[in-house]
């Protein structure tokens, strides 16, 4: 490949990191918050699909994209509430419930989303951060989803909140030692329920990013497993919101490599490059499953580390 092609590839990866990475960012931040409270919500894949449908539907019906974004968040929160409530019952396994929520979210979204495939809804505006450049490619790469800065701020807020606010400390305490929390008179289930619902709301914003910005329409193959990958990202990021941001961008960039390589004429083994994000997931899980490292940063109450 020529130097020019390399520059194009890097630009495509930069653009792709933000375009493709934004839903990963929101879902992983939502999951991070939920897991910090000591519960895993595998249902975020279903939350992502359901909220994408709800957000698109609301934006289409009201002709207001921001009402659509709000509806996506609320829909995500609602589905997560079901997860939180069921998991509050004694002897309920959160992972099994999560799989149930995932299937429920997909099914509901497909059923209610039938009339939404044909219409076009208003779209989330782009922030034109690349207008300083004369290169069309740089401009295109820096047309940024208006939700992305929100995700960025959210990552910083969560990072700060976990260490500097009463609520953040409460969530972490419940996640690290339910007994200690009970001894202090904190409602463990109450905090976990709140963390799960808030996590669902944040993941729902990722759904809005899918259906209202990129690719910007509703159809049944919209997520194709991105919610599940985002859950894996949280483990990779070791429950640190800023690392979630880095991981989401990395995965977005990896997703852009396959098409970008083919567009510069390097078509060999495109299947392998298309599989890059998934291969990366496996590799990361393999690397992070080492017994010395797995526990570091993980909430002690979490099913996987207990």
């Amino acid at each position: 490949m020529s130097a020019h092609a390399w520059v194009d590839l890097l630009l495509a990866m930069l653009g792709g990191a933000i375009r493709v990475g934004t839903p990963f960012l929101f879902v992983s931040l939502g999951e991070c918050l939920t897991e910090k409270s000591g519960r895993i919500n595998l249902g975020l894949e279903g939350v992502l699909v359901f909220s994408a449908m709800a957000g698109f539907g609301a934006a289409w019906l009201t002709s207001s994209v921001w009402l659509g974004v709000l509806a996506a968040g609320l829909a995500g929160g609602l589905l997560a509430l079901v997860h939180g409530l069921v998991c509050s019952l004694p002897q309920v396994n959160d992972i099994a419930v999560g799989i149930g929520i995932m299937l429920l979210g997909n099914g509901l979204a497909f059923y209610l989303g039938k009339p939404l495939m044909e219409p076009q809804a208003p779209q989330i505006p782009s922030l034109m951060l690349g207008d300083w450049s004369s290169s069309a490619n740089v401009q295109a790469a820096l047309h940024i989803n208006a939700l992305f800065p929100l995700g960025l701020a959210l990552a910083l807020l969560l990072r700060w909140g976990f260490t500097h606010t009463r609520w953040g400390l409460l969530v972490r305490m419940v996640g690290d030692s339910a007994d200690a929390a009970r001894a202090l008179g904190t409602s463990v289930n109450g905090v976990r329920l709140a963390a799960t619902v808030a996590g669902g709301f944040i993941a729902g914003l990722g759904g809005a990013s899918l259906s209202l910005y990129y690719p910007g329409s509703w159809n049944e193959g919209l997520s194709s497993g991105q919610g599940l990958i985002a859950v894996a990202l949280v483990i990779f990021a070791r429950w640190n919101p800023l690392r979630c941001l880095a991981a989401a961008l990395l995965f977005g960039a990896a997703g852009a490599v396959g098409p970008a390589l083919q567009s510069v004429g390097y078509g060999a083994a495109y299947q392998l490059f298309n599989a890059l994000p998934y291969a990366l997931t496996l590799l990361i899980l393999l690397l992070t499953c080492s017994p010395q490292r797995a526990a570091r940063g993980a909430p002690m109450e979490l099913g996987v580390t207990r």
Binding site: G15, G16, P215, S224, A256
Partner: peptide, 18 residues
């Protein structure tokens, strides 16, 4: 650009952009 499957909305958008 081959996306690998019949319905891959994100990959199709990414392919179009590239």
């Amino acid at each position: 650009i081959f996306t690998g499957d019949w319905s891959m909305p994100v990959k199709e958008a990414e392919a179009t952009n590239s």
